[in-house]
């Protein structure tokens, strides 16, 4: 007997507020990285897709062109026309992209080389040292901001009096761009790492107070009422109810503020004696080693993404009661890993 059961129609890719199947989630997560990478590859490797310039491989009779020089196509053609008219040998070149867009393999090579190449002058740092220095600045800045901001934010969320006292002025301060404090920080704290840390602290702290206060205010009033009918005193309401209740949200808030730290890092590292990954990127930019510039930028992105994913994973381990599903990237990795094994 032939089975004529109607096939279930496939669920649509775009359904308002519905979850995607695991396979599709993985596919899209991988795709979100592959699309920009693919575009980059296409522009770099497919001849004629963009390539608005010519790289001179033989200058011919030209006096203006040098070997390896990149010139716009129009200028190249004009010069060659002039050369031919003057009876000289025309220049030879190949189409290429501008120097600020190196190909992926060049960036990959640069990333590897940057780690194994000793610094040019003796006092300079290796790339990994520069990176560690940047990370330490963020760790200090974020740590100090969290040490002040979290308790203050919780206090603002719990007591209306603290909220009225602290929040108006913080609301005012947070609109001042942290880099503008650079000169001041330099004058007060010297030219080493202290002003850099100060800028990160300023960038994070004020917003953190307001965000943590808001998170604290979200605590279900019913939980506080239940606790007080069970005999909890004011102090216990804060330590036994408010703090544990906000922890998972607080954890995610802090993850976001680590990201904010990276945002202000490049500005902070340019204050006083430049240092860290920003110094590396800026120097390489001056030497027009754009492959190294890309390598530095991508490194920052990778460090940020990896730390955030680790923290997200830790959050799910630390706070099992939220019953949170693993994020798209984690589940995608897991799925890919499992598929690879089987």
């Amino acid at each position: 007997m032939a089975l004529t059961a109607a096939r279930r129609p496939r669920s649509p890719w775009f359904a308002v507020r519905r979850d995607l199947s695991g396979g599709r989630t993985t596919f899209l997560t991988v795709l979100s990285f592959l699309v920009p990478l693919g575009l980059w590859c296409a522009i770099s490797y497919v001849p004629g897709l963009w390539q608005p310039q010519m790289r001179v491989t033989s200058a011919g009779g030209s006096e203006t062109f040098d070997l390896g020089m990149r010139v716009p196509k129009a200028q190249f053609a004009e010069e060659n026309a002039d050369l031919v008219a003057a009876g000289k040998a025309p220049a030879v070149g190949e189409p290429c992209n501008p120097v600020f867009l190196p190909a992926p393999h060049e960036v990959g090579k640069a990333m590897y080389k940057a780690f194994v190449t000793p610094p040019k002058s003796k006092g300079d740092k290796w790339l990994h040292e520069a990176l560690l220095h940047s990370i330490s600045i963020i760790a200090w800045g974020f740590g100090i901001a969290a040490l002040i901001g979290v308790p203050l934010g919780i206090a603002c969320g719990v007591w209306a009096a603290s909220s009225r006292l602290v929040e108006p002025v913080v609301d005012f301060l947070r609109y001042m761009p942290p880099p503008t404090f650079g000169a001041l920080a330099l004058a007060i704290l010297g030219i080493n790492d202290e002003p850099k840390v100060a800028i990160i602290v300023i960038g994070i702290l004020f917003n953190m107070i307001l965000v943590v206060a808001n998170t604290t205010r979200q605590v279900d009033r019913g939980l506080l009422e239940a606790a007080s009918t069970l005999g909890a005193r004011d102090r216990q309401l804060v330590t036994r109810v408010v703090v544990p209740a906000i922890l998972p949200t607080l954890w995610n808030d802090l993850r976001i503020f680590i990201g904010v730290g990276w945002t202000y890092l490049t500005v902070a590292e340019m204050v006083g004696a430049s240092s860290g990954i920003s110094l590396f990127i800026n120097q390489q930019g001056k030497y027009r080693n754009y492959d190294n510039v890309f390598a530095g930028i991508i490194l920052i992105g990778m460090i940020g993404l990896v730390t955030d994913q680790i923290l997200a994973f830790l959050g799910r381990v630390l706070f099992p009661w939220t019953g949170a599903e693993p994020g798209p990237l984690t589940s995608a990795c897991r799925r890919l890993f499992r598929r690879g094994k089987s």
Binding site: G222, L230, G231, A232
Partner: peptide, 29 residues
């Protein structure tokens, strides 16, 4: 106060505590 216990419509269990720890809450207070 603990002399008047209350049960709410919205349960108001502490989500970060296990069932047993929830029941222990008043005793710990």
């Amino acid at each position: 106060g603990p002399d008047r216990g209350m049960v709410f419509q919205s349960y108001t269990l502490f989500p970060w505590l296990t069932v047993q720890k929830n029941v222990e809450f008043g005793l710990r207070m």
